[in-house]
Nucleic acid binder design. Sequence first.
DNA 1: TATGAATGAGTCTTCATTCAT
DNA 2: CATGAATGAAGACTCATTCAT
Lengths: 223, 223, 223, 223
Amino acid sequence: MQMTKSESAPAPASARPSSEAPARAKIREAAAGLFCATGYEGTSVATIAGQAGVTKAAVFYHYGSKEQLFDEVLDGYYERQRELFTEAVAGEGDPRARMHRVVDVYFRYLVDNRRYLMLVISVLASDSPHSENIQKSVTPLVEWLRQEVAGAVPEEGPSSIEHLYVTVAGAINHYFSHARTLEDIFRGPMMSEEALAERAAHLHWLVDAIFARIATDADANAK
Amino acid sequence: MQMTKSESAPAPASARPSSEAPARAKIREAAAGLFCATGYEGTSVATIAGQAGVTKAAVFYHYGSKEQLFDEVLDGYYERQRELFTEAVAGEGDPRARMHRVVDVYFRYLVDNRRYLMLVISVLASDSPHSENIQKSVTPLVEWLRQEVAGAVPEEGPSSIEHLYVTVAGAINHYFSHARTLEDIFRGPMMSEEALAERAAHLHWLVDAIFARIATDADANAK
Amino acid sequence: MQMTKSESAPAPASARPSSEAPARAKIREAAAGLFCATGYEGTSVATIAGQAGVTKAAVFYHYGSKEQLFDEVLDGYYERQRELFTEAVAGEGDPRARMHRVVDVYFRYLVDNRRYLMLVISVLASDSPHSENIQKSVTPLVEWLRQEVAGAVPEEGPSSIEHLYVTVAGAINHYFSHARTLEDIFRGPMMSEEALAERAAHLHWLVDAIFARIATDADANAK
Amino acid sequence: MQMTKSESAPAPASARPSSEAPARAKIREAAAGLFCATGYEGTSVATIAGQAGVTKAAVFYHYGSKEQLFDEVLDGYYERQRELFTEAVAGEGDPRARMHRVVDVYFRYLVDNRRYLMLVISVLASDSPHSENIQKSVTPLVEWLRQEVAGAVPEEGPSSIEHLYVTVAGAINHYFSHARTLEDIFRGPMMSEEALAERAAHLHWLVDAIFARIATDADANAK
DNA sequence: TATGAATGAGTCTTCATTCAT
DNA sequence: CATGAATGAAGACTCATTCAT
């Protein structure tokens, strides 16, 4: 996996109290990178330890088990994501403007944490119990969205907020999760600033298209 | 990945006639299920053999290696997908109608082969060389789409066919790939016929919204 | 632990069908020796494999786990023991004579399988679930004894068959189980043929003393 | 086993005054319980520390090594046992009466310290050097017994004091050491006061049976 | 006086793969 | 055609022990 952005920079997602033992942080960062690149099963504790520059035993000393280490890596991802969404929500504006802001936040987050997306995806692909962990983050977001657009979006049916969420989230994710298979189609690098800006523009365009359509539907119903 | 086919292998990898040794088929089916459920690394040859009711050695006798078996499973998925798209393409109608048809075909395909989607996803999540395999299937589809909607869709920019493809594909996939995390949001089972029908309706609604917006854009540009 | 008797001779307890894979037998014999000498926890699979002249993986191939291997070793011990007792029971004579015969059989068995006694003891010392295994062998023996001496021994109270069994079994076992701490007291080797003969004579003397006392008690009661 | 006492150890191994650091005592007590329940190999320093509510490092600080801790636990057992026997010996009466007293003392001791018996047994079962430690306690006891019953018991042969000691010790021990396998045979709990009283009565009955037989033998010899 | 952090050696176990039969 | 037996390498994890602070 190629990282357009800095490889060694401590990922935002893993920012932790500075009082943390340095070895602990090094282990988590190494683990994050490896879990994202090769998945849970594909990553061995020995490799993590090697990458972190500590002994295998140190990994177990600090995290107890491979599974717990994985959990903490995953938690860090969602913790940061929740923080960002909370900030994004704080602002003002009509539903469409808020939707744009949420889309931007999530899009930017994925730009910086593309590798984590792979982690999430690999968790969902296997039927591991970690997916509950992920669910805990998704549900509140959609519930919040439901409130934000209440009135502007039908409560039920094919254009309800659930469907819109899935569609927009899919639209954002897919660009990153399937990047490797799309390189031929998008001529030029998909992670360049220009390409990313264009994709962001598309997402705004998409949100507008959706809201326009909802408005049209409402008009038709009103008649 | 090199396919150093063992000399004594009983059948060419790509031919899968009904005369195929029954053990071979049973192994491939068991492998498909297990690879989808627990990924490549998470599935052991012993488990596959057990599920297929054959010995471990038989797996190697028929498929040479775990990798080759995996390749054949993956190939089978894309082979069928390609067949379906070819059929879907054959029909007539305006770009929007064709788009609806393609969406329907892919959607229905995922309904029947949801587990394979997980397989594809797990391949993409890890940086395994199998993703090339997947790319080979995606590129022709988009190129075909490009021709089909030529004229109706801008050639460049945020509403170009590449972006539309990613968005629609993402919208279709996400419903299935993230189903486990979305169950709370969609009250009731997501894979019931009603729920699937509603999702299909949403996808049509989405395609219409997109085409409507493109038309609006074209009008604005024309002025 | 010093073995007065042949060290390499296949122990009677491990006699198995000759169709058994030779490696399997070698592993079990090595395991038996080591488990007896150093206990379950104190014996590593690597050591067993080394002693048996096979690889570690072979041990798991043949026995699945360390625990299952241990079970089979233990089973072998009790299987043989049960066979011997069944033979001993078959004969005729009054209760005292039968008791003598059972004592002789068990005593001789311990002479040949002293190391197994250590195994049993180490199982009882830890609160492992293997002790159930042992119980299954003890209960039927006592029940049989109860029938054999019915009428000759009180059904209840301090001289009932349960107590006699415990006492005689303890008298037999202790000589072997505590041999290491008794060497100073018995001047000369405790496992020499003379020493063993003397101990056997003592056990007969003990049985006679017990039966004599039971007779005395019965006379006293009768009055 | 070498006792390379670490220079900074806070207290001599044998002195155990009430002024002892409370952590030290807590560690020893936790260790005693665990060693008895799961044996030396089966007990980890981490578990001991956890049970004692101290850190692993504290165990090493106070006891230097796992072996030394084990030694002290074992020493404590025999120290108390020696004290009890010394008291029991102090009284008067004929050999038979003294024998009864010694049996009672040892029996009562085991009732209170059953778990230690398991410890001793597990030591004997493995060929660890700790068994020398045990021997040091047994030899003096038998030598004292030899003097006490001098004249009343043959000096040699099957009814000599060595054999009687082994038999009686075995009779006492077996009830406790094999309790788990005997529960089916003794209906009702083996460690209830009634059951224990009955077992004690049996032991007295046994001693009487033995002395009666010795008297009979002496009469026969005298003739 | 006490401990948090660290570790090298070892634990049991699983793995994909080979090969004589 | 198929497999039982075997294995070297690697898997996650535990252990008693040390040491700077």
